[in-house]
Amino acid sequence: MSDCVKNWRGVLSLLLLGPFLLAVLVPFLWMVLGMFKTNAEFFQPMAKAFFPANYDWQNVVDLLGGEWVPFWAVFGNSLIVSLGQALGAVALSAMAGYAFARFSFRGRRLLFVLAVALILVPRQLFAVPLFSWVNALGLSDSLLGVMLPGVVTGLGVIYFTQVFRQVPGEYFQAARICGASEPRVFLAVLPLIWPALLSYGMIHFILAWHEHLIPMLVLTSESKQTLPLTLAKLYDVSQRTPQGVQMAASTFAVIPTAVLFALCHRKFKSSLSDLLVH
């Protein structure tokens, strides 16, 4: 293809992508600009006051200073819960995936089907019995009570099964010839699949960061809340939180996942490309 045709196609597809990009980005822009607005400005029609009259950081300062909610404590809780879930899920799923991919054993098929079923029957449908069970285990109102149920994932197991299937057998043989025990073989292979480990960890972190229903049921005291719960509280009309503060909190809630994704984006995509088509 000549360069000229290529450029022309590039510009044309950019033009066609334009409306979609606008549709996605305009609401986000509105959210970010919203942190600087007064309530009066905020409720005007979009076309009139899309940009704030002046960029006043007071709302952000109030939010971060804990004027409305113990923001940093909640942010920290969310980080702990999401990181803990991501690490746990990666460890558990990688081990299970290794077993499914590298061994043949009795009941393998059945257990694998169970892992697929895990994706299809999500916990949300059985939130109430889960909640009462978590209570019975003495984990109510603890971050652990949110984390532990969150590390079981069918998606992760299936993902890592696929990943380990693609590691060439020679690596395993080499490790075994050196006389390594099975757990050591597993650990020796891990560096080979680190993009996959990182990618799944990222996905799971994002899912955990968004989780609303289970934390809502399990966490009751204010100091234990996670970000989605606190956001819901800020949005609640009866709290009379200024719109600007709400928008600041919303913006801060998006930043961690957005930054994480931006950092891992490339590795994630290449790891998926390898996986999806083979």
Partner: peptide, 26 residues
């Protein structure tokens, strides 16, 4: 024969605890 189950154990344990039991409870 038991090696794969060694790797599966943590997953299966939490699967039982936080998925199968709530499902049956439901």
């Amino acid at each position: 024969r038991w090696t794969p189950f060694l790797f599966l154990l943590p997953f299966l344990f939490l699967l039982l605890l936080f998925w199968l039991i709530p499902l049956v409870g439901g």
